[in-house]
């Protein structure tokens, strides 16, 4: 395996390990382990300021957790889809320009 590819794989593996480690180590606490930090902040506000009334509510709220996760997946898919498209286009463009010899300037 080339060094470039190997380094990339290691980077990816470290990211995966960082995400999986808390789950494997069972670091989740409370009634709902691994709740969102945004929701926890909301709870903390309600706990310290029980009188506070949110004065504005969302125009649209996903009717269920399923719909919400579908929309999150859609967001990720749109982003990942475009990134994949970009790398496909850029790689092909670079290839069609021909492989320059190492140390020479590629044709502009």
């Amino acid at each position: 395996m080339k060094r470039f590819t190997r380094t990339n794989l290691i980077l990816l593996l470290v990211v995966v390990a960082l995400a999986v480690a808390p789950l494997v180590l069972g670091l989740g606490r409370g009634e709902e382990p691994f709740a969102g930090a945004d929701a926890l902040a909301e709870e903390a506000i309600v706990a310290s300021h029980p009188d506070y009334e949110p004065w504005f509510s969302s125009l649209y709220e996903p009717p269920s957790g399923e719909i919400e996760s579908a929309l999150f997946a859609l967001q990720a898919a749109l982003g990942a889809g475009f990134l994949g498209y970009y790398f496909g286009v850029a790689r092909t463009r670079q290839r069609l320009r021909g492989t320059p010899e190492p140390g020479t300037t590629p044709v502009d």
Partner: peptide, 14 residues
């Protein structure tokens, strides 16, 4: 777009 959609578990248990 991708990264801000990914909720990832952390060491604090959230």
């Amino acid at each position: 777009f991708v990264l801000s959609a990914l909720k990832i578990p952390s060491v604090t248990g959230s």
